[in-house]
């Protein structure tokens, strides 16, 4: 028998990522690492990491990485790519990093049409710090800083970043996928391949939002998280490709 599925070649061979069991960050890393492998980009890659759970794979990914300050990955990725166009630049961010403190950097990098690939992990809470409300926390969803649940009156509705970014002229590919089952993961893999290919061909800005499970702070088992995504999360965050400029 021959291998028909194996681990990405350059990531750690000795220990897994630092993410919790069932966490979407792990899956997201697998997908973009696979794309780097597919396009043979590892040696040119510069990975801009956020502050938050997203950065927990730093020793595992074995790719040149720079740890941004919270919210500033969009600016760092912009500038590194401008000054080093031969590098392949990914801005990997969670919802606190990208949609709360980093909203300005996110929107302006997109609006300038920087030739970078943004991978946005939406797990509807601040994970690393223990489950506080994020801009993507859903109405009615509880969080440690919204203990009776998010309310429209007090907290406003969750931000739909992909749709917002898609209204800008410059971005070429903007999509949202989910990572809670094999069918959706395969679609997400295709989307990430497309986004990465755009940058490889130097054709501009791509933004991929990934609905991800956070078993620890959702207080659900990974399997229950998958059902929760189907029943609840996808209603607040519809999946789809919001922009795909040829």
């Amino acid at each position: 028998m021959e291998k028909i599925y194996e681990r990405v070649s350059f990531t750690s061979k000795t220990s897994p990522t630092g993410y919790c069991p069932g966490c979407g960050h792990g899956t997201a890393h697998k997908l973009f690492a696979r794309a780097l492998e597919h396009f043979n980009l590892r040696d040119k890659t510069v990975l801009v990491y956020p502050v938050g759970c997203g950065g927990l794979a730093m020793p595992w990914i074995n790719v040149n990485v720079i740890g941004a300050a919270h919210g500033r990955a969009g600016a760092i990725a912009t500038a590194i790519k401008r000054a080093n166009p031969e590098n392949f630049v990914i801005s990997y961010q969670g919802d606190g990093d990208l949609a709360a403190i980093g909203t300005a950097e996110t929107i302006h990098a997109a609006n300038r049409g920087e030739s970078i690939t943004v991978i946005f992990i939406n797990n509807a809470n601040f994970g690393m710090t223990g489950g506080q409300m994020a801009p993507t926390t859903m109405l009615g969803q509880t969080a440690t800083t919204a203990q009776s649940g998010r309310s429209l009156e007090e907290h406003g509705a969750p931000l739909r970043m992909a749709e917002m970014i898609a209204t800008l002229d410059a971005p070429k590919y903007v999509a949202r996928f989910a990572l809670h089952d094999a069918k959706n993961i395969l679609k997400a893999q295709q989307g990430i391949m497309k986004a990465v290919e755009l940058q490889v061909k130097g054709e501009g800005y791509s933004f991929v939002e990934l609905i991800s499970m956070c078993p620890t702070n959702w207080k659900k088992s990974p399997a229950e998280c998958a059902n929760y995504i189907d029943e609840t999360v996808l209603k607040a965050f519809p999946l789809g490709v919001f922009k795909d400029v040829k």
Partner: peptide, 10 residues
């Protein structure tokens, strides 16, 4: 703050 981090990155 975006500008200083652009400098940090480059």
């Amino acid at each position: 703050i975006a500008s200083v981090f652009m400098v940090f990155g480059v």
